[in-house]
């Protein structure tokens, strides 16, 4: 995915940061155990958030163990321990996301990049097949997103809402799938819908962030971008993008508020309430007039 969903370390306590890192390291290890040592390169903050959310929804008491880091054996790391499928689900999502990103890149890149992606495809494809065997629903959701995105991009009159739909639907399905694979604390008939709505708006937010971030690149390369398509001028990007970003984030928060609070609630709130708005500001600030003038001085 895109790496926008990460904690704001400056506002986490030492304990919270240690917990966050333990999930990040545990997911890295899970990728190594289930796929390959090279699959650890697919580790992302977005999928760490997914693992964090699942762990927070379960009834399991927090538990960690210490072991040497495989990437840097001189370092000892703390790893979150779980008997649930939280890490396995997040690992499958990591692998499938990277695989379909690779497929998209093969279609969109120049000759040399395409050659490299073609070399990687069989290896990552093997991991993706393994992920599909374990969690067909997760793999299918990412696959569908990739296909839908291509359909959306071929529509010259595509609206911003429609353009965000594939990513939003993918995360909606992936979050709703948690209810099927993991025993959620105090789960009831509404839990699946809440998770689905939560995922939808988070996915929408991620897509809009990515589209805003890539505006310059897409405008110069002629790549698909809903804001370029809507003829929004570069200077008007913050004004046009901030309201839907705010709205998507507020809906994400409202949905999250309906879930039972879990052990990682403070970290999740840090991400949604502090880190995401900060990320919005960081992405949109590059389009604000005045900054370039300051730089040139």
């Amino acid at each position: 995915m895109f790496g926008y969903i990460r904690a704001d370390r400056s506002q986490l306590s030492e304990r919270e940061f240690a917990d966050y890192k333990s999930v990040y390291c545990a997911l890295c290890r899970q990728l190594g155990v289930e796929y390959s040592v090279f699959a650890r390169l697919m580790l992302s903050y977005d999928c760490t958030f997914y693992a964090l959310l699942i762990l927070s929804l379960t009834d399991e008491p927090p538990s960690c163990y210490t072991a040497r880091c495989r990437v840097n054996p001189l370092k000892k790391c703390s790893y979150a321990r779980t008997s649930t499928e939280a890490l396995s689900l997040a690992a499958a999502l990591s692998v499938s996301s990277v695989y379909y990103k690779l497929i998209d890149n093969i279609a969109d890149s120049g000759f040399f990049s395409r050659l490299l992606y073609r070399l990687l495809k069989p290896v990552v494809g093997r991991w993706n097949r393994r992920a599909a065997e374990k969690y067909p629903d997760i793999e299918q959701a990412v696959h569908r997103m990739s296909d839908d995105q291509r359909t959306v991009e071929s529509d010259p009159g595509c609206s911003v809402d429609r353009a965000a739909e594939p990513t939003a639907m993918m995360l909606s399905t992936v979050c709703a799938a948690v209810e099927r694979h993991v025993a959620i604390r105090h789960s009831n008939e509404n839990t699946r819908r809440i998770l689905s709505t939560f995922g939808y708006f988070l996915g929408r937010w991620i897509y809009l962030m990515d589209a805003a971030d890539d505006y310059d690149k897409d405008q110069s390369s002629g790549g698909f971008n809903p804001f370029v398509l809507s003829h929004i001028e570069r200077d008007a990007i913050p004004e046009a993008v901030l309201p839907p970003l705010n709205h998507a984030l507020s809906e994400t928060l409202l949905s999250y508020g309906l879930l039972e609070k879990g052990r990682y609630d403070s970290i999740i709130m840090n991400i949604l309430c502090a880190a995401c708005p900060k990320a919005q500001t960081a992405v949109l600030s590059k389009y604000q007039t005045g900054e370039e003038d300051e730089k040139s001085l």
Partner: peptide, 26 residues
């Protein structure tokens, strides 16, 4: 209501740990 959501700024999350009301700041 829609306008309020579209213009909301960073909610006061640091005061809202456990049982707070940060979504309300929206």
């Amino acid at each position: 209501h829609m306008n309020a959501r579209r213009t909301y700024t960073t909610p006061g999350y640091d005061t809202a740990y456990g049982g707070g009301c940060s979504t309300c700041d929206l």
